[in-house]
């Protein structure tokens, strides 16, 4: 059986919130190392890969592999009943029909309990090759959100260009064009505002802004976001969570004719 308790429901609420508009039905794959999820959007252009390691929970118990087939819209309805600071416990039997969720507000001695019906989901699982990326950019997640939102007003797509001088986001549309350039920036007193560019070779790729703005719904999960790029491979956008847990998005590039 699975039993996994989080000190605050916040993490799980925010993670589900971040992916629910991209993927609808998906399996939460539980085993002794934690709870993982991999799902593609309907158009097979974007992929979500989430890993909540066992260490993120206290306690965490899962004796065998359990796949929880969940409709995220339904899960969102249940999670709406959880206070952000409630403790959240997920429980399931070995061959479960339901996922049991318990929210506890210890200060109020209030316990709420829900059973969410599960479904059988036959999901394609993709092997993601280990990639040595040409450029890895770490930047404030709020800044990335602002850039994608601002450029969305100009165009459907953005070209991300990483060079030794910095990273440039540029868009060209019907009304004109726009760009934002960030240079490496490491303020000692404000680590959350750090912009770091690791570059083995310059790279420029074009992506759909519709998907990138969608990924930015994960912004509340982490102050920093990591963008990993290599020529002609999918972009990886990573929101790192405590203890090595993460929420990653992969996005296939737009390719010139």
């Amino acid at each position: 059986m699975l039993e996994a308790r989080l000190d605050t429901a916040n993490l799980f609420k925010s993670a589900v919130d971040a992916i629910k508009d991209l993927v609808q039905d998906c399996n939460f794959d539980c085993n002794d190392s934690g709870i993982a999820l991999q799902a593609m959007d309907n158009s097979h252009v974007a992929l979500v890969s989430m890993m909540l390691k066992a260490e993120a929970f206290s306690p965490f118990r899962c004796d065998r592999n359990i796949a929880l087939g969940v409709n995220l819209t339904s899960l969102t309805k249940v999670l709406r009943a959880a206070g952000r600071d409630d403790t959240l416990t997920l429980k399931a039997e070995d061959a479960p029909d339901v996922l049991n969720l318990v929210f506890e507000a210890t200060a109020q001695d209030r316990i709420s309990e829900y059973d969410l019906k599960l479904m059988d989901i036959d999901q394609e699982h993709l092997g993601i090759p280990d990639t040595e990326y040409a450029a890895t950019i770490s930047m404030p997640s709020a800044e990335f959100k602002r850039i994608t939102t601002d450029l969305m007003a100009m165009s459907e797509s953005v070209t991300i260009e990483a060079t030794k001088d910095g990273v440039k986001f540029s868009s060209t549309g019907d009304i004109g064009n726009g760009s934002i350039t960030l240079r490496q920036h490491t303020p000692v007193d404000k680590p959350n505002e750090t912009v770091e560019i690791e570059l083995s070779e310059p790279v420029a790729l074009t992506f759909s802004l519709k998907y990138l703005t969608n990924f930015c719904k994960a912004q509340p999960l982490s102050n920093q976001v990591k963008l990993c790029l290599s020529a002609e491979v999918p972009l990886m956008v990573e929101y790192g969570l405590e203890g090595g847990s993460y929420l990653r998005f992969y996005l296939a590039p737009k390719i010139g004719d």
Binding site: H44, V45, G127, S208, Y250
Partner: peptide, 14 residues
């Protein structure tokens, strides 16, 4: 013009 690639082109089915 550019066209949107899909992930199947890059990732293999596990």
């Amino acid at each position: 013009g550019s066209r949107q690639a899909t992930l199947g082109k890059f990732f293999t089915q596990a």
